[in-house]
Amino acid sequence: MNQKIAILGAGSWGTALAILAARNGCQVLLWGHNPEHIRSLDQHRQNQRYLPGMVFPENIAVTSDLKDIAPFSQLILVCVPSQVFKQTLLALKPYCTDNIAVAWATKGFNPDDGSLLHEVVAEIFGLQTPAALLSGPTFAREVAADLPTAITIAANQAKFAHQLASIFHSERFRTYTSTDLIGVEVGGAVKNVLAIAAGIADGLGFGANTRAALITRGLNEIIRLGVQLGGKQDTFMGLAGLGDLILTCTDNQSRNRRFGLALGQGKSRDEITKEIGQEIEGISAAKETYLLALKYGIDMPITEQTYKVLYEQLAPQTAVQNLLSREQKPEA
């Protein structure tokens, strides 16, 4: 293909997507903000911190200088945490031309105001900029290991969605395209909150029945918020909705689930965050989702109780009791 793509974010997910794109024949430039970490990537030709053992193909180069990005490629894929998504793009903008195309694999809201990330891209680069999101049930290590995976690529322009699909699609990595940026973004952000809730329930010793109920009722909360914000209901029954929700609520590769699991077992928030050592997107997403629910008057009881555990020191056992004691009502 000889397509060039610059990837911002040298964590586990950015590294996995760099390996995938390179494996598919692309020239890849992987950027990270920490020069010491980037030197390690260059020296060892693998990400020993986040994906040890996954050797880089020859067509991956690395840099810690944002000035290198635009001259290499106008096609940029952002894989940094949502908390620094906006500031990373603002730092990049002075080096870009008007021909830039921005994709991201970041899941979450803009912490400044709860806005969606496609709105951040439009604010910085303009509404005309090709913009797309890669999302779905994906763990970085499995993608890097070339295990079968499927994702959704949602874009504001069909041509851009198909361009990204051609870069990442392979026999072991299926890409499906969508026009529903809002729905895909909401699904990817809120599922992290629900993964914390599912982890808490398991940490408290509750069983598979509880976990299944949380996933099902949690999906209902995602749909309520997503549709209110302009997403399409069908999106939430697909890879970026139900698929990603099941993945993060049921497998301990999910940092958000592991965080909730440890909370339920009685560990402190600071202690768990230090142990995991990577960004736990669901912590900030819980606050942003809860505030959006209040703003629009949407009933999201699982999100509300998770927020109160994280930000109001509510005991996890009390949060569960609050959910169980809610007034009986029809399911639909």
Score class of each variant (00 low, 15 high):
Tyr290Ser: 09
Glu275Pro: 00
Asp251Pro: 02
Met54Phe: 04
Leu92Ala: 03
Leu239Glu: 08
Pro71Asn: 01
Leu214Glu: 14
Leu147Lys: 15
Thr15His: 05
Glu281Ile: 06
Gly231Arg: 14
Glu288Gly: 01
Gly205Arg: 01
Asn220Ile: 11
Ser325Met: 09
Thr106Ala: 03
Glu312Ile: 08
Thr273Gly: 04
Ala240Cys: 01
Arg211Ser: 11
Cys96Met: 10
Cys96Asn: 09
Val102Gly: 00
Asp65Trp: 03
Glu279Pro: 01
Gly231Met: 13
Phe160Arg: 06
Asp180Pro: 00
Ser135Arg: 14
Leu292Val: 02
Leu239Cys: 07
Gln46Asn: 03
Ile272Tyr: 06
Pro71His: 00
Met300Trp: 09
Ile223Gln: 10
Lys287Ser: 14
Ser178Lys: 07
Gly136Tyr: 00
Ala198His: 05
Gly230Ala: 07
Phe236Met: 02
Ile280Lys: 07
Glu331Ile: 09
Ala70Ile: 02
Arg174Lys: 11
Phe206Leu: 14
Ala132Ser: 11
Asp146Val: 11
Arg172Ser: 13
Thr15Leu: 05
Gln313Ser: 14
Ser268Lys: 15
Thr318Asn: 08
Met1Trp: 13
Pro148Lys: 11
Ala101Cys: 15
Ala195Met: 06
His118Arg: 10
Ala105Asp: 13
Thr129Phe: 02
Val143Trp: 03
Val193Tyr: 09
Thr216Gly: 03
Glu119Ala: 12
Thr63Tyr: 11
Ala319Leu: 08
Val320Trp: 12
Leu242Ala: 08
Gly199Thr: 14
Ser170Leu: 03
Lys93Thr: 06
Gln265Glu: 10
Ala150Glu: 12
Gln157Arg: 14
Glu279Ile: 15
Leu90Asp: 11
Gly218His: 06
Gly231Cys: 13
Pro137Glu: 10
